[in-house]
Computed example of a mutant assay.
Amino acid sequence: MSTRHRAAVLGSPIAHSLSPVLHRAAYEALGLTDWTYDRFEVNETDLPGFMQGLDDSWAGLSLTMPLKRAVIPLLDAISDTAASVEAVNTVVITEDGRRTGDNTDIPGMIAALRERGVEKVEYAAVLGAGATASSALAALARICTGPVTAYVRTHTRADEMRGWGGRLGIEVHTADWAEAAHAFDAPLVVATTPAGATDALVPYVPERPGTLFDVLYDPWPTPLAAAWAEQGGAVVGGLDLLVHQAVFQFQQFTGETRSPLAAMREAGRAALA
């Protein structure tokens, strides 16, 4: 019988992470009484030592900033999904000690959209150009049949987004942030920006908006998400992404095929409330 029953989230800062709440709720809901999930404040300098100190009780790790890229040289292998965006948010540790990196943000985004009935779109828009935007492009590469327009603030970011598009096999156009209100013409808009960045766009929400995926979850709803919902548009939020990607992590760590999605979502909402 496997003695691997430990998992944790690593990052810096980490105190705000909802991952322990979500994973512990999943263990409780599915009766995995011998599993534990913790959080550890770990930066890039600390990471090699932490990884070296893991014993055979460990099954997996969740990674947040700034470790998603720093962990890659410390792994035995990474999935094609993680390699496509050069970011690992999940490390699975097998019984023989092999450590494989994956990225569950990308399938998490797809699953969150599918839950709202979004299976395919003809074109899309992305607001922002940070790390989450590259994951958004990777998700869109699987569901978007046409081009994606990214609204960015600098020429450097524009070059980066077009570069990601080339790597991911999706046509990416770029436009200046000053034109961001035009994003709302798309049937799917993915907002990957920090809190407050899209507040000035609220007056431009159209009368019949499509679907908005706003990756923020606290505070929620964002002014943009609230205005979008008021106009009858479908809204996918950051908590949706968080719970869907956590389900994939949970299943990889534990080997469970059952989904604890409802328990995770309820626990996440309670924690945010």
Rank of each mutant, 00 (worst) to 15 (best):
S79M: 12
V85D: 02
G53E: 13
G117W: 15
A131R: 12
T94Y: 07
L113T: 06
G117F: 15
I106W: 03
A131I: 09
E95K: 09
A70F: 15
N89K: 06
L67S: 09
N43Q: 12
T104C: 14
T149Q: 02
A82V: 05
E95M: 03
V148M: 05
A59Y: 06
A139I: 08
A111I: 10
T90E: 13
A83L: 07
E122G: 10
L127G: 01
R116N: 06
L113N: 07
R39W: 06
A112R: 02
I72P: 02
G108V: 10
A129Y: 13
A124V: 12
A133E: 11
T149H: 01
T149V: 12
A129E: 07
N103G: 06
V42D: 13
A139E: 05
A87S: 11
P48I: 09
V71F: 07
D102Q: 04
E95H: 11
P66H: 04
L127S: 01
I110L: 03
L75M: 05
E115S: 14
G97R: 03
A133P: 08
V91M: 05
I110G: 00
N103T: 11
R69S: 13
S135K: 05
V92R: 02
D102W: 00
D46Q: 12
E86F: 00
I72S: 07
V92K: 02
N103C: 08
L75K: 04
L67R: 03
I78Q: 09
S57Q: 15
A125L: 09
L74E: 15
A136G: 12
A83R: 13
D105H: 01
P48N: 11
E115F: 14
I93M: 00
